[in-house]
Design a protein around this nucleic acid. Structure first.
Lengths: 216, 216
DNA sequence: TTTGTTTTCAAACATCTGTTTGAAAAATTA
DNA sequence: TAATTTTTCAAACAGATGTTTGAAAACAAA
């Protein structure tokens, strides 16, 4: 199945609709009927093309996973092919640029995938347990190694901690998961424009990474 | 209703069970039957004491909201009553200390509430729209003002952005929402111990806050 | 066209959802 | 004690959930 042009168009419409709804409402709060209605297809189509709702979720993720991994690895590769070793700022720029690029190009899923990532950290769906490390293991390992070289004053452990912090800040920022939006009536900052977010984010992260070690 | 000792004990058992389950599975994926079964009470008890599932969620939040707001405001108040103006590190310590304290004291909800907060940024429940700004508006305003004074080289806007970044990193760190946990098979960093998290977090955030402005 | 495959569709499936009911039990008040 | 209120409980409620069915429609290959 899913070989003809017709089938491809239908399954794509389902993926597009599901992506938006999963990001907006989360996995559990998004029903099959919401998805199929939004996609303009029959309810049975989801099970026909993706087997189950879980299968659809996985497919939604898989479609964006490769471009994202490719983009971030490409940027890092360019950096490391130079003759001078990249510093923390440049490595971060490569990573952020990949995300921002993804966020700008609608054909790559736009900001939706970044937001979906942000959700997934908080509520990881069991079905991704296996595919995520396979897809992003290399990305993570290579960025961690690059940071390690750029930050010789930090231990392995502490480099991992800081990567944890920077990705949290980054994904939430791109997703617009703003504390202020929740805590204040008129938040001053509520933008999701990837360019603006990246510009605000970079000085913060660069300084945070270069900070002295916590361990004495 | 909810005046006798018996009623108080029952409603507390419901709140405790619901808190754990909401944090673990989220609002939608947690059913009434899961909650009442875990609490050892009849299904109807939730509607009897809290009116509805939404009402229960609000009650779960409200129970922890006041102690958290009080703790963070107390720490800031102590700082500002000194004769020297606090710097960014000290202000952050006050904020983080409040969260860590909450995380350590089980009677205050332990880490559960911090994790629930983390979830709420990503999937804000409509029922909190009104109560959150009322509860945390003052906390946010006072911390933002303190940061503003401690970071005169930053605009209002940029202070807000950095507060956004620091809270994202903080809540995710305390909640253990680790990118590495999702991306790698054997994450080096997976601790949720508030003391350790706070020690790793502080140098990163302090440096990030003090970083030069992004705007030229 | 005829044959075979792929795709759509309305309807029904069993199961789970949050909520309500009305009576029994327990606790409190008089 | 008896009268009254508060709290529990099993059962049922209407509606939504993901999934399956089997036939009709659309398409492709012969």
């Amino acid at each position: 199945m899913a070989e003809t042009a017709k089938a491809l168009e239908t399954s794509t419409r389902i993926l597009d609709a599901a992506e938006v709804l999963f990001v907006e409402h989360g996995f559990d709060a998004t029903s099959m009927r919401m998805i199929t209605q939004s996609a303009g297809v029959n309810i049975a189509a989801v099970n026909y093309y993706f087997g189950s709702k879980d299968g659809l979720f996985k497919a939604v993720f898989e479609r964006r996973a490769e471009p994202f991994a490719r983009l971030t690895l490409e940027r890092l590769g360019e950096l490391e092919s130079r003759d001078v070793a990249p510093n923390a700022r440049e490595i971060t720029e490569a990573f952020v640029a990949g995300s921002a690029e993804l966020g700008r190009d609608a054909s790559l899923g736009g900001l939706l995938f970044v937001r979906l990532m942000g959700r997934t950290f908080v509520e990881p769906h069991p079905i991704l347990k296996e595919s995520m490390p396979r897809r992003y293991g290399e990305v993570t390992r290579r960025y961690l190694a690059a940071y390690r070289r750029a930050l010789p004053h930090l231990s392995d452990q502490e480099v991992h901690w800081r990567f944890h912090f920077l990705t949290s800040a980054m994904f939430n920022a791109f997703a617009g998961n703003n504390v202020l939006r929740l805590f204040m009536d008129q938040p001053l900052v509520n933008a999701r424009d990837p360019i603006l977010v990246a510009r605000m984010l970079l000085p913060f992260i660069e300084a945070g990474l270069n900070a002295p070690a916590a361990n004495p």
